[in-house]
């Protein structure tokens, strides 16, 4: 008998989750990676695939690491902000093209503009696993010692940038 009630139970769990989701206010979720050294990697560059880029190259700098992809619609939302950020030259922005074909990634940057100092290509998504990528986009703030100081899941908004990320960047740069 129990198996016949199962569809109802599953559906009600789903419904409760949706109701709870409706009433919740967006809030920050702590990531286990924050405060820990960024996972080391070495990946081919998107535009020059025979050249590698690794975490070691960024020692001594405060920088933003943005995970994006050409198939990601939410990335188009944050993109204009990054274009503006790169014009203001406040903090170097590096990109990681995640689970994407190289040509698609390059075509996307050509169409929307390229705000990144450099882009690496993580076609297989291996490095994404190390960084605990939930979905795309995600943005990491990494300090001079190579420690992740802040992780943003989802598209960055103007408020996130001006109220959280940039003040933190200033603080870290002063250290």
């Amino acid at each position: 008998m129990a198996r016949f009630i199962l569809p109802f139970v599953i559906f009600m769990i789903l419904a409760i989750f949706l109701f709870v989701g409706l009433g919740l206010n967006p809030h920050e979720v702590p990531s286990p990676l924050v405060g820990k050294p960024a996972p080391a990697f070495s990946l081919p560059q998107l535009h020059e695939p025979d050249k590698q880029f690794s975490l070691q190259d960024m020692k001594g700098k405060v920088w933003l690491f943005n995970v994006w992809a050409s198939w990601c619609t939410a990335c188009e939302q944050e993109h204009p902000l990054f274009m503006e950020l790169s014009r203001r030259n406040l903090v170097p922005l590096y990109g990681m093209d995640y689970k994407d074909k190289r040509e698609d990634g390059m075509a996307w940057l050509q169409q929307h503009g390229n705000p990144y100092t450099l882009v690496v290509s993580d076609a297989e998504g291996r490095v994404g696993i190390d960084y605990g990528v939930y979905g795309v986009p995600e943005t990491y703030l990494i300090d001079k010692q190579g420690v992740i100081r802040y992780k943003h899941i989802g598209a960055v908004t103007e408020r996130d940038l001006s109220e959280k990320i940039l003040p933190l960047v200033k603080e870290l740069q002063a250290k």
Binding site: L18, W71, G135
Partner: peptide, 13 residues
Amino acid sequence: FMDALGFGKLSVG
């Protein structure tokens, strides 16, 4: 669900 729970916007793709 991720957005409703405040994780921000994502694409699964």
